[in-house]
């Protein structure tokens, strides 16, 4: 392993993050605060407790997940797409590094950024609602796994995308709807029975449910299943990336 190269990619990517600090930090914090104001205070005051938790607190795990998933995906996809777009990918291809090292560098940096943002939102949440974390270690594990798996997904999207429009396509058309419909703002027990069944096909439900369990000790689906779902998703992304590596798909002719 060429760890110097991995560290170089990681540092280079993190530098971009800190260079655009306003965009990277302030905007997720601002939008999350807006969610708290609108959902937590305005709408939440008319909603009774959900599963014995105040509505404002109930949406915190979902809000964190929403930001972390979109940030991990977009950071990783942009990170690898940009060199393709401006042509600097030649350097990655002609350097004595393998694909695994490239993945660790880019995905690691994207996951770190998403983790930062997740933690910041969590801290912001404490200013708005009363919050206790029942299982802090599990919470952190879920958070890290989500960051990594969605960064892997973003990396795949970045390799696949041929233009900026395609880069936005999957986050916009797939991830955001799945997260919104995945129980970020409600418990799936609040849905009509038929939708409770349909919603179980949404993989994000398992992630949010598991993450919420780590806060409140209660979940929509068994926590073991949540863990299995995220592990499965991570493995699927890894397998796909391994295939890209083997075939040189969209990278090396």
């Amino acid at each position: 392993m060429n760890w110097t190269a991995v560290a170089s990619i990681y540092r280079f990517e993190m530098a971009r993050f800190f260079r655009t600090i306003t965009q990277s930090f302030v905007s997720p914090v601002l939008s999350t605060s807006l969610y708290f104001v609108v959902f937590g205070t305005a709408i939440g005051s008319r909603i009774e407790q959900v599963e014995g938790i105040s509505y404002g607190a109930f949406i915190v795990p979902g809000l964190i997940m929403l930001s972390v998933m979109t940030q991990a995906t977009s950071n990783a996809s942009f990170g690898i797409y940009f060199p393709k777009f401006i042509g600097t990918i030649y350097e990655l291809l002609s350097a004595p590094i393998n694909f695994l090292e490239i993945v660790i560098g880019y995905v690691g940096a994207a996951a770190t950024k998403a983790l930062f943002i997740g933690v910041i939102i969590l801290v912001t949440a404490f200013f708005f609602v009363d919050l206790t974390i029942a299982h802090p270690i599990a919470m952190l594990a879920f958070l890290v796994l989500t960051c990594v798996s969605f960064a892997l997904l973003g990396f795949i999207i970045g390799i696949w995308a041929g233009n900026f429009e395609q880069l936005q396509l999957i986050p916009l058309l797939v991830i955001t709807p799945l997260v919104f419909l995945g129980g970020s703002f409600y418990s799936i027990t609040m849905l009509p029975p038929i939708w409770q069944t349909i919603t179980l096909f949404n993989p994000v439900v398992y992630l949010i449910s598991g993450f919420r369990w780590s806060f409140f000790g209660a979940s929509d689906v068994p926590v073991g299943l949540s863990l299995l779902a995220i592990a499965g998703f991570t493995l699927a992304c890894m397998a796909f990336i391994w295939w890209i590596f083997k075939t040189g798909w969209r990278i090396r002719q």
């Binding site: 990619i9 540092r11 280079f12």
Partner: peptide, 9 residues
């Protein structure tokens, strides 16, 4: 610096 690092130096 990035280029040098990529080559493991």
């Amino acid at each position: 610096r990035f280029s040098r690092g990529l080559f493991g130096k």
